[in-house]
Nucleic acid binder design. Structure first.
Length: 476
RNA sequence: GUCCCGUUCGUCUAGUGGCCCAGGACUCAGGAUUUUCAUUCCUGCAACAGGGGUUCAAUUCCCCUACGGGAUGCCA
């Protein structure tokens, strides 16, 4: 075993990439990049009941979009393939058998019903729930025979009954458990597949994982894992358990209280760069006050030592702000790349030069790409008015002014800030209008509201012909 | 219930014994700039869960309590 740094992101393919998963993947990736290690993607698909068609492809695709490319994994390949646990079941069964031989694991023939009844009883009596070890004492030879005869069985780990275990977590430092709290975990299920605990330990060892960086929900499983390493005579990896991502009510981040799939956020028009930047701050902070970081910058800046212990609420408002920052500060070409599909989807084909200008107009005004398209609506579709607006548009002075503009506007070639201003000034003098009575009718007619960008921009983005038509309507 | 982990502004966080009557960011409020809107800039509101210790000195160290979360599965 080498002393190279190797970390892994080991999701179970449930259909989409959870933002908590993204954060875990990101921290793994960043740590690997920071120390010159390797980032491995491994698929933990040992639960046949949870199989979701296309989930893995989707997962890999999403990781790719946000820029977290595995050095090894199902799509990339690598020296430790296969990276699907469902393709390694033979391996786990052999290791489980080894444990049985050593007396560190045993066959258990309890049915689900029996176990349910046991737990219910324990709960009623006020005892700690957990497997009571009733199959522990079946003689190995007899157990083997029963299994061979076709009786359904699982293999359980024979954990110590008493004493303490402790270990040093990179994030939490010393963590101690008492063995009497750890029950005999199932290692091999009755369908022959391994549980997470066995597969995880076997693979981390075989794949030479040096650091396990995962969510805090795994912390209480560590004793079992450590015991497995010990029984196999393997050196356990270093551990770092990350704080959980929380709903606004502080419960573990869940679907019920908003979107949890990274894909959902991308579909709404959050940029990969903003997602990464926002998510990295949920549980980690750079030494200074800086909060805006590109992935490349994070690769230099990141440190596991600066990871927080407490859970972090996923605050969509700050994500929106963060996305807005990227929308207005990234190079326009970059934003166009991401915004184009959203605009085409909403408005159909748009001439490239106009598309570029629409996007540049919308980006300081929106928090997401979808909102950017909404900002452009007034340039793209028929305007609607309230009764109050109509009254102003139908004023005699407004009508006269529109007629004047109808004639003058097409004469201004090219249309520039200067020419529009000159026209505005001429209009003001000719009709003796200023302030609200000058600007409001024009804005209303050309843009649909009294507030908005300057008139030149409105005309350019709507198109001269559209603008002329919009004035025409009110002169009849 | 039991075990484990956690607890600084509403939220994300800085802070490792004196620099902190606690700093930054989001949100919110007010102001400046802009014909208006958006952007930008400035200002403001707002927190060390509570109680005991240790110390000349605690946000920082220890203990207790409270609260929150996780685990307690033939799910990961």
């Amino acid at each position: 075993m080498s002393d190279a740094i190797r970390v892994r992101f080991a999701p179970s393919p449930t259909g989409y990439l959870h933002v908590g998963g993204l954060r875990t993947a990101l921290y793994n990736y960043l740590y690997a990049r920071k120390v010159g290690g390797r980032f491995i993607l491994r698929i933990e698909d040992t639960d046949q009941e949870r199989y979701v068609e296309g989930a893995v492809e989707n997962l890999i695709n999403t990781l790719d979009i946000v820029g977290l490319k595995p050095d090894e994994g199902p799509a990339t390949g690598g020296d430790f393939a296969p990276y699907y646990q469902s393709q390694r079941t033979e391996l786990y069964r052999n290791y489980a058998a080894e444990l049985v031989e050593k007396g560190a694991a045993y066959y258990c023939f309890c049915s689900s019903e029996e176990l349910d009844a046991m737990r219910e009883e324990q709960q009623q009596e006020g005892y700690v729930t957990g497997y009571d070890g009733r199959c522990r004492n079946i003689a190995p030879a007899e157990a083997k025979k029963r299994a061979a005869d076709g009786e359904p069985y699982v293999i359980r780990l024979k954990t110590p009954d008493e004493g303490e275990v402790f270990f040093y977590d990179i994030v939490r430092e010393k963590v101690t458990f008492n063995w009497d709290m750890v029950d005999d975990q199932v290692l091999i299920k009755s369908d022959g597949f391994p549980t997470y605990h066995l597969a995880n330990v076997v693979d981390d060892h075989l794949m030479e994982i040096s650091h396990v960086i995962r969510g805090e929900e795994w912390l209480s499983s560590v004793p079992k894992h450590l015991f497995l390493y010990e029984q196999f005579g393997w050196k356990p990896p270093k551990m770092a358990h990350l704080p959980l991502l929380l709903n606004p009510d502080k419960s573990k981040l869940s679907k019920r209280q908003g979107d949890v799939a990274v894909e959902d956020y991308l579909a709404k028009g959050f940029l990969p760069s903003a997602m990464i930047n926002f998510v990295v701050l949920l549980g980690w902070h750079a030494a200074g006050d800086r909060e805006i970081f590109s992935l490349a910058e994070l690769e230099k800046e990141f440190s596991l030592k600066r990871v927080n212990k407490a859970g972090a609420v996923f605050d969509i408002e700050k994500l929106r702000w963060m996305n807005g920052q990227y929308l207005k500060n990234e190079p326009l070409a970059e934003i166009i790349k991401f915004a184009r599909p959203f605009f085409l989807e909403r408005f159909g084909d748009i001439e490239e030069d106009r598309l570029s200008r629409l996007i540049d107009y919308a980006r300081p005004r929106a928090a997401t790409l979808i909102e950017m398209t909404e900002e452009c609506l007034p340039f793209m579709q028929k305007l609607e008015y309230s009764a109050e607006d109509r009254a102003l548009l139908e004023e005699e002075t407004s009508k006269a002014m529109f007629s004047f503009w109808l004639e003058e506007l097409s004469l201004q070639k090219p249309l520039t800030a200067e020419s529009v201003n000159a026209l505005l000034k001429a209009t003001s003098e000719k009709f003796d209008l200023k302030g609200k009575m000058l600007y409001s009718p024009l804005r209303l007619a050309l843009f649909g509201t009294e507030h908005g960008p300057d008139l030149l921009q409105i005309i350019e983005l709507s198109g001269l012909q559209t603008s002329l038509k919009r004035l025409q309507i009110w002169t009849d």
